[in-house]
Write a protein that binds this DNA or RNA. Structure first.
Length: 419
DNA sequence: TCTGGGGTCCTAGGACCC
DNA sequence: TCTGGGGTCCTAGGACCC
């Protein structure tokens, strides 16, 4: 059996842990740059505030109903997530962290255990230890566990835990599960399936395997099998990412090469840090910039540059260098740039290092510099030491006017974000 | 004025190899 | 009439997830 544990309204719940006066009141959290709504408390949902709605469209509704609004505070959410995951990991031999607020547990050897009682204990303990309310779905496949989790959240009678462990329960659940709410079926497929009168998870399972394969490929076939109780999506045991991206909308539109360079240098440095953290190297770097696609009355430009690195690396100076070269090759004057980013891929473990015969760089030496820099920043706060190209102007920095304090981490982190 | 950021996997088609 | 067969790699795009 698999369990899926999911934090309820995660970001909104994190904010409330440190603002208990907001319990029972509508709270929303905005995306970076205070752009869209990305989390809503139950009360905010009840007001009809939709997910992913641009904040400026909601101004009236927010004022009228005294909704408390927060900028997203990923330092806080990341730390709270870590607390939740640590608590959950005590309850099963194997855990897969699926997202910042979700984890799968593999319940091998639980044949004799009362799963409902077990689930309730996990939920109770996690909420007590962290202050974050969670829900749990338990079923023979991940896709069914996802469905069970939905029901655990939706119907208070389940007391936050729903178990699908018989065919009768499976049938009953799938008949109530909207096709668009099935894990793995997004908007495109939902529309297509509805056209064929498939409106629930159950309808979908009644089609033939070959029809599903033909209409939706192997991915759809896996979903079909999973809904019928045959597990095909295994626990993901990989420890390192296959690609790493740092990208941002700029706080204000940028037109000149210089501030954009500064931003790109910071994105590259961030990718390098993430690589070092997971002890790996990247062989490919991609940089991109584009104007605001929503501003249809303005000239549009979007471009990217892929750079094959001579030797796989996680060195900030090297990645910044290549990223800035790439930027120069695609930057064009006369546009108002809105967003840029750096993506590294073709990621390999740090050791053993595959060298290049013609490599002239003293990698050992640069490695030591990076280690010292990481250590200093770990002790004294983020970005205390950085590469000069990252600059100090920060014209590109995001807007986040409603940021909460980083209650659980160092003050430096707060300062870093407020600069 | 104003619309996020970070991932994964699969497929089709083209270029190229023998 | 009639023009092989088998493979790899790369890229772009599309679908999905949170």
């Amino acid at each position: 059996m698999y369990a899926l544990i999911d934090c309820n309204n995660f970001y909104a719940s994190c904010e409330r842990v440190f603002n208990p006066s907001l319990n029972g009141k509508p709270v929303v959290v905005l995306s970076n740059n205070d752009g869209c709504v990305i989390a809503r408390s139950t009360e905010a949902k009840a007001l009809g505030i939709p997910m992913a709605e641009p904040a400026y469209k909601l101004k009236e509704l927010i004022e009228k109903n005294q909704v408390t609004v927060f900028s997203s505070n990923y330092v806080l959410y990341g730390d709270m997530s870590h607390r939740v995951m640590t608590t959950i990991s005590e309850f099963a031999p194997e855990m897969e962290i699926y997202s910042i607020d979700e984890a799968f547990l593999l319940l091998d050897g639980f044949q004799l255990i009362d799963l409902k009682a077990y689930g309730e204990k996990v939920v109770r303990t996690t909420t007590r230890n962290t202050g974050i309310p969670v829900s749990m779905g338990i079923a023979p496949t991940k896709t069914l566990a996802k469905a069970a989790n939905r029901f655990a959240k939706k119907y208070p009678n389940y007391k936050s835990v729903c178990v699908i462990d018989t065919d009768e329960k499976r049938e009953k659940a799938l008949k109530l599960l909207d096709i668009g709410d099935v894990w793995g079926i997004g908007r495109q497929y939902a529309t297509k399936l509805r056209y064929y009168s498939i409106n629930t998870g159950w309808d979908f399972t009644q089609r033939t395997k070959s029809w599903v394969r033909h209409t939706m490929g192997v991915v759809g076939e896996r979903t079909w099998l999973e809904l019928r109780g045959t597990p095909c999506v295994e626990m993901d045991r990989s420890t390192s990412k296959k690609s790493i991206c740092t990208s941002r909308s700029f706080g204000e539109r940028l037109t000149e090469l210089e501030p954009i360079s500064e931003a790109i240098a910071n994105f590259a440095a961030s990718c390098a840090e993430k690589l070092r953290k997971q002890k790996s190297l990247a062989s490919i770097l991609m940089i991109f910039i584009h104007t605001n696609p929503h501003a249809t009355n303005q000239p549009q430009y979007s471009n990217q540059k892929v750079i094959h690195l001579p030797v796989a690396t996680n060195d900030s100076t090297e990645l910044i260098n290549f990223a800035l070269q790439g930027l120069k090759s695609i930057y064009k004057k006369g546009y108002r740039y809105k967003k840029g980013g750096v993506i590294v891929s073709e990621i390999v473990p740090e050791r053993p290092l595959q060298g290049n015969l013609f490599d002239t760089k003293d990698r050992e030496k640069f490695n030591k510099v990076m280690t010292v820099m990481d250590n200093l920043n770990a002790s004294y706060g983020k970005q205390k030491v950085k590469i000069a190209a990252q600059g100090f102007d920060r014209k590109w920095k995001l807007k986040n006017e409603k940021l909460s304090p980083c209650y659980t981490t160092k003050m430096e982190d707060v300062l870093e974000i407020k600069v």
